[in-house]
Design a protein around this nucleic acid. Structure first.
Length: 520
DNA sequence: GACCCGGAAGTGCC
DNA sequence: GGGCACTTCCGGGT
């Protein structure tokens, strides 16, 4: 490829561009961890963005949007974008999905969309569990302003999270990044049912619902969340009761004039964007994606959300969709269920006895580690015996309100694969018993210079499993990360092996500055 | 016949 | 090459 084809190949800014194009999607099924980048956020974009644009795009004014368009045109060497096509404020801008952007600007819409998502990702409060059904409890004694419940998040109050829902708890609502993705499957999008992952990727209503009395958070179905066949890439904007009239204006008449900056570059962008797409590679992830999207309730639905019990409504349809996802045309429910049965061993999913087609997540999907392998057919380990842990003989309790960490050999750090040992913050496993051996935690660090919390992803050295396993392990919800200056709360729910007393936990809380809440 | 179970071997990807 | 996460096939059970 001639250099002139990519005239800014060696432009230092390319680091920004390539980061934009290649960065992992900010919201993937493995949404345990906040978006991370090897590039410090300060060098990603914030330093280059005009000052007025360093705020969350939801807070941008129309003028900010215009500034951003101009900035983007320069930054990404695209044709100047007519401000008329984006005559809206930031809140409306954030509601545009890729298609909307491309409809408005066929030449540069996809680039603009990604640029915006990148900014959103970098500027919002990382949200480890976008739709965790955990009841989020405020740490005792935590005192900070409580924003009002709002079906339409008020971003002027900062990035909000949804906490809820017992009488003593408070409900927030949260913005959710609306990352963009391209259909996972190779087929033309109009020929297939969008994968659940893709469905997740479309901008959705940020409204969230707290189920009364349950303290459960679930995505509130939008008017598009119906049983009807999901549209592919249609904007939800028209379904939303938005104040901005211009948001409703769908500018579909803007046809491309073919005057793209460089077609080869555009194609490269598209190709690289596709690399960033997520995939529900794991069956449990796939099922969970289906479960949290009402569009797929004809395939699989929750029987009991709080207990994480779900029922396969249409085994054949589910299998077909899974086969579609995995590019296996011969997928059947028989095979799918075999894969599910491999999860039994790993305490990820369990059959609900006596109920056909009904299964239960033994842990909330957001706490399942990727390395917590669901299928290891040839693993004939007997680690439980080695560790002196007896495998529970009885059926796991099905009345668990809050999913707890299943105790199994696979949970044992010393038996994790190397990849498992590299844990995301959200799935951090601490060796509480040997806490004195732990280095000063650098898991989460507030960036005082920025309005938002920055999670610092660190590699946590895992201590070898102590020989004496008499200590108790419990599941903990670690709740915290209160940016008191903003009234932000980040919940970090991670599993922790606990061997200490409450006093131990208290000291650890003081030590690492987070609240440890034992829920087992 | 539909669903369920788990062993065994194969496959594709990383 | 090895590990992972299935996929495929199977015999058996309810």
């Amino acid at each position: 490829m001639a250099l002139k084809t990519f005239p800014f190949q060696f432009d230092p800014r390319l680091a920004i561009n390539s980061q934009l194009m290649y960065s992992p999607c900010p919201w993937t099924p493995s949404y345990h961890c906040p978006p991370t980048s090897s590039v410090p956020s300060t060098t990603c974009h914030a330093a280059l963005l005009p000052n007025t644009l360093t705020r969350h795009p939801q807070t941008w004014t129309k003028e900010d949007v215009r500034v951003w368009l101009n900035w983007s045109a320069q930054e990404y060497a695209i044709e100047p974008v007519s401000p008329d096509k984006f005559d809206m404020n930031g809140k409306a801008l954030c509601l545009l999905n890729r298609k909307d952007m491309m409809d408005r600007d066929p030449q540069s819409g996809d680039i603009l969309f990604n640029a915006l998502q990148q900014i959103i990702t970098k500027s919002e409060v990382p949200l480890p569990f976008p739709f965790t059904p955990y009841p989020l409890r405020l740490p005792a004694g935590t005192n900070f302003p409580v924003p009002p419940v709002s079906p339409s998040p008020d971003f002027n109050q900062g990035g909000l999270l949804v906490l809820s829902g017992n009488t003593t708890q408070t409900t927030f609502s949260t913005p959710r990044s609306t990352p963009s993705f391209i259909p996972i499957l190779p087929q033309p999008s109009h020929q297939r049912q969008p994968s659940p992952c893709q469905a997740q990727q479309e901008p959705i209503s940020t409204a969230v619902t707290s189920i009364p009395g349950k303290g459960v958070l679930s995505p509130a179905p939008t008017s598009t969340d119906t049983d009807s066949a999901p549209s592919d890439g249609d904007s939800n904007i028209d379904d939303m009761d938005f104040q901005e009239a211009d948001v409703r204006r769908v500018d579909l008449e803007s046809g491309g004039n073919g005057n793209y900056y460089d077609e080869a570059f555009r194609l490269k962008c598209v190709a690289t964007l596709k690399k960033a797409e997520p995939d529900c590679r794991l069956l449990w992830e796939f099922i969970h994606q289906l479960l949290i999207d009402a569009k797929y309730k004809h395939l699989v639905c929750w029987e009991n959300v709080s207990d994480l019990v779900f029922r396969i409504v249409n085994p054949t349809g589910l299998a077909e969709l899974w086969g579609h996802q995995k590019n296996r045309t011969n997928m059947t429910y028989e095979k799918l269920s075999r894969a599910l049965r491999y999860y039994y061993k790993m305490n990820i999913i369990r059959k609900v006895p006596g109920k056909r087609l009904t299964y239960k997540f033994l842990q909330h999907p957001s706490t399942i580690r990727k390395g917590q392998r669901g299928a290891r057919p040839h693993a004939k380990t007997n680690l439980m015996l080695q560790n002196g842990i007896n495998e529970p003989k009885s059926e796991p309790s099905l009345d668990v309100g809050v999913p707890r960490l299943a105790i199994s050999d696979q949970q044992s750090p010393s038996h994790m694969s190397s990849q498992t040992r590299r844990l995301s913050p959200a799935t951090l496993t601490l060796s509480d018993r040997h806490s004195e051996m732990m280095p000063p935690p650098t898991l989460f660090r507030y960036n005082e210079t920025h309005s938002n919390i920055h999670f610092v992803k660190g590699e946590i050295p895992i201590q070898d499993e102590p020989e004496d396993l008499s200590f108790k392990r419990e599941s903990c919800n670690v709740i915290d990360n209160v940016d008191r200056s903003q009234g932000h709360v980040c919940q970090t729910n991670f599993q922790q092996e606990v061997g200490g007393t409450s006093e131990d936990n208290s000291s650890r809380e003081r030590e690492i500055g987070i609240k440890i809440e034992v829920t087992a």
